[in-house]
């Protein structure tokens, strides 16, 4: 086999060393830096894009969060307002009711005092009438003229007996 012809070995090894060194130079001076450059560039670009995407995502999330808090705030505010209005209305109603009640109470009291006065007056009249009637009856029936004081006393006693 020609592979074991040792006279060709020096030539093969010499040219192997020369060519592989040349290829090494080509690779390290030209191919690898160029490829590394383009791959780095792409990697950087992808990283940048990813970063941007992430930033935009966080921005979107922040916007969504802000929107949601604003919404919640608005809702809370609306609730508070409704409650305030309702409370004010309730208070106004309660005040009016209280006022009306108070006025009614005053009027009722006035009425009552008037009634009491009227009754007292009426009762006083009744005593006078009763005394006069009693004097008249006594003078007509017995021809006696009674002392006014005694008659008044008797009427008072009689009224007391009737519970008045």
């Amino acid at each position: 086999m020609p592979q074991f012809d040792f006279s060709t070995f020096p030539s093969q090894i010499l040219w192997l060393v020369i060519t592989i060194f040349a290829l090494y130079l080509v690779m390290t001076r030209m191919a690898i830096p160029r490829l590394a450059e383009v791959l780095d560039q792409r990697q950087k670009m992808m990283d940048d894009d990813l970063e941007q995407a992430e930033r935009l995502k966080s921005q979107t999330e922040a916007a969504i969060a802000a929107y949601e808090t604003a919404l919640a705030e608005a809702r809370a505010k609306a609730h508070a307002e409704i409650r305030a209005v309702t409370e004010a209305a309730d208070r106004a109603t309660a005040e009016r009711t209280a006022e009306v009640n108070a006025r009614l109470a005053v009027q009722i009291k006035d009425g009552e005092t008037r009634i009491v006065k009227a009754r007292d007056a009426a009762l006083a009249n009744v005593r006078e009438v009763a005394a006069t009637v009693a004097q008249g009856i006594v003078s007509r029936l017995a021809g006696l003229s009674l002392d006014t004081k005694r008659v008044d006393g008797a009427v008072a006693t009689a009224l007391k007996e009737h519970g008045r």
């Binding site: 006279s7 060709t8 020096p10 030539s11 093969q12 010499l14 040219w15 192997l16 020369i18 060519t19 592989i20 040349a22 290829l23 080509v26 690779m27 030209m30 191919a31 160029r34 490829l35 383009v38």
Partner: peptide, 28 residues
Amino acid sequence: GIDLSFTNSSLMMVAAVLLPATFFWFAT
């Protein structure tokens, strides 16, 4: 007295340098 001839083997080795050199040159 040592045979260091440029042979058909050496030619192919040179080709194995020039081909990738050309390829990478145009590819990049």
